[in-house]
């Protein structure tokens, strides 16, 4: 089933010959349809509520975390903007501030944390380290930008960014949440992949190579036996030459 079917209004496609025997148990399509209908009314209210209660995850891996702690204390007090509690579990958090260097050893843990957060979830890439690798650029052990492993909503440069900058990033994120619409967000979500492996010989991503191979296979299947025959002939020629 393609993605288009998932968000189509009405029931999903069921072939005619199965109409009598199939029972639809998922209400996703109905909820989607209802949601799309009501979203002009509900979205502004819901977004206003959501944007003013963005709870961050307690996540700090190095020096940037000190500024993150500072912004939670009384001098700057992030709770004025609705992010009062740093939740200790991703299940209760809406936003992750990637405060600090993400090493290759930490990357799987960060991905797990991100995937454990309930939708809708947001990421602020805090500090030079998580934007481009920062001063660990070209290091063998540091992920060169956290947007290679999780999607990022707001980039917050600095080494470390000042607490006011964190508040500014939070306000930017709130603006973004207010302009949002549940359906558009759902369409945008895509599958995450931890590490994209690269083929050493060609320098291409393994995913791309697999896709190429699949397309070739499809072409062969579509072209019928002729192409297969041709390749067999070629092999035969080659073996003759060898002899």
């Amino acid at each position: 089933m393609s993605e288009g079917n998932l968000i189509k209004v009405g029931s999903p496609y069921v072939p005619d010959e199965l109409k009598d025997t199939v029972t639809l148990t998922s209400l996703d399509h109905a909820i989607d349809a209802l949601g799309e209908l009501l979203s002009p009314v509900i979205s502004p209210v819901a977004n206003l509520a959501r944007s003013n209660s963005v709870w961050p995850l307690t996540f700090g891996t190095s020096c940037c975390a000190i500024e993150m702690m500072c912004v939670g204390m009384s001098a700057f007090d992030i709770s004025r903007f609705g992010s009062e509690v740093f939740r200790a579990t991703p299940r209760q958090a809406d936003m992750i501030l990637t405060a600090g260097t993400i090493t290759r050893k930490m990357a799987p843990a960060l991905i797990t944390l991100y995937e454990q957060m309930p939708e809708p979830k947001y990421v602020i890439a805090m500090g030079a380290c998580t934007i481009t690798g920062g001063m660990f650029n070209d290091s063998y052990s540091v992920v060169q930008g956290v947007d290679r492993i999780i999607p990022v909503d707001v980039y917050l440069p600095g080494c470390p960014p000042r607490p006011e900058a964190i508040l500014d990033a939070l306000l930017k994120l709130q603006q973004k949440i207010r302009t949002e619409n549940y359906h558009e967000r759902k369409k945008r979500t895509y599958n995450q992949r931890a590490v994209r492996y690269v083929d050493y010989d060609t320098g291409k991503l393994v995913d791309d190579l697999v896709e190429e191979a699949r397309q070739e296979a499809d072409a062969v299947l579509a072209g019928g036996a002729t192409i297969a025959l041709k390749s067999e002939e070629k092999q035969a020629e080659a073996s003759e030459k060898k002899d």
């Binding site: 290759r104 990357a107 690798g133 070209d138 063998y140 992920v143 060169q144 930008g145 947007d147 290679r148 492993i149 590490v195 994209r196 492996y197 690269v198 050493y200 320098g203 291409k204 991503l205 791309d208």
Partner: peptide, 18 residues
């Protein structure tokens, strides 16, 4: 003689998606 790994997590790959 150490060589850095080549994958999607750094810029070593000329076809990197970023």
């Amino acid at each position: 003689d150490y060589k850095q790994p080549v994958d999607g997590l750094n810029d070593k790959n000329p076809h990197s998606f970023r």
